[in-house]
């Protein structure tokens, strides 16, 4: 297997755009008849003027709400779809040309789609994949067992795929995706729908795999643990554009401007009072919560102490998931 062009930069996108054309139909059978003769076409820009460079061996976490353009980006990078305009290069190839040399060096795992053969056993599927990728039968079989041991699923290799549970199937899909040792791996929701145990197994496996084989990975997930634990680099997407590009830690520093303070009084407050920091404390209330900038926390606590005896104070750091949620709900640009 050889890589064409410079190895350092594995992905290069410039002014990348993808527009999907669809049509809309008003409710009801009359509008269905109307739409039979005349359709109201609409264009949706799934990606807009997107620039992206990814270096070899980096794990990039892609985060965004549904429809933000994450999966479209992965589809473009893996050659599943053509761009409407702009430049896209992966491993020095134009992915949409689907050259065998390119396809042999990459892999995409779509968490919501089966890519192995439903009617045969995983072992038969892997043997077929070995032929498709031109791998040596013996060494690919060894690799199957090595990966299966890491994922603790050796017992299921000979069972027809359709008879396996979702978690077991996903493990098989991962083995299938990694069998040919891809240089670049696109993982779209690899833990979706799995229980906590299966999620952890797959996350742990990916951590271990990345350490050992150093592939370049683009990962999307709705589970922020996947992103925060695995990614070196974070891309936040909104409306087809990258709104943040940096590390998870930098992102937290940029966006965590508040702390959650929860105070519990020993006795409920007897009189309602408007507080200096802006909130209203009702009579009978014994718990107060506030999201404050760190420099205002001590001032806030002093004010509360003047109102009664405080039994407990809890200050919580905002977690990654909450920060992301906050980002997705607000129209902010951090890039």
């Amino acid at each position: 297997m050889c890589v064409k062009g410079p190895v350092a930069q594995i992905i290069h996108c410039k002014d990348l755009e993808r527009v999907f054309v669809t049509y809309k139909k008003e409710e009801g059978i009359l509008n269905s008849f109307k739409g039979f003769f005349q359709r109201q076409h609409i264009e949706k820009k799934a990606l807009q003027s997107l620039d992206l460079q990814v270096d070899s061996g980096v794990i990039v976490g892609l985060v965004g709400a549904n429809g933000a353009g994450k999966t479209t980006l992965l589809k473009l990078l893996s050659g599943l779809i053509h761009p409407t305009s702009g430049l896209v290069e992966v491993l020095g190839f134009k992915p949409f040309e689907r050259k065998p040399e390119f396809l042999r060096q990459m892999s995409i795992l779509l968490g919501q789609k089966n890519q192995l053969w439903w009617d045969i056993s995983p072992l038969d599927s892997f043997s077929l994949l070995a032929s498709i990728y031109g791998l040596d039968a013996l060494s690919s079989r060894q690799r199957v067992y090595q990966l299966a041991e890491m994922l603790a699923c050796t017992d299921q290799l000979q069972i027809q795929l359709r008879r396996l549970s979702l978690g077991e199937r996903m493990k098989m899909e991962i083995i299938g995706a990694l069998l040919h040792k891809p240089k670049i791996l696109f993982l779209d929701e690899p833990t979706i729908g799995l229980d906590v145990v299966a999620q952890n197994t797959i996350r742990h496996f990916l951590e271990q795999y990345v350490k050992e084989e150093r592939p370049t990975i683009l990962l999307t997930s709705h589970y922020m643990d996947d992103i925060s634990k695995l990614s070196h680099r974070l891309l936040l997407m909104k409306e087809g554009q990258i709104k943040y590009d940096g590390t998870v830690d930098q992102f937290m520093e940029l966006s965590v401007q508040k702390q959650k303070v929860i105070c519990t009084f020993r006795h409920p407050i007897t009189q309602s009072k408007e507080l200096q920091w802006g909130g209203l404390l009702q009579a009978g209330q014994d718990v107060v919560e506030a999201d404050l900038p760190p420099e205002q926390v001590s001032e806030f606590l002093s004010e509360l102490r003047s109102l009664g005896t405080i039994e407990q104070i809890r200050v919580e750091e905002t977690d990654f998931e909450e920060v992301i949620r906050g980002f997705l709900e607000k129209d902010v640009g951090l890039r």
Partner: peptide
């Protein structure tokens, strides 16, 4: 159904 995706991303 889009299950052709698994064929399109492989060298076949």
């Amino acid at each position: 159904s889009g299950s052709i995706n698994s064929i399109l991303v492989r060298p076949l």
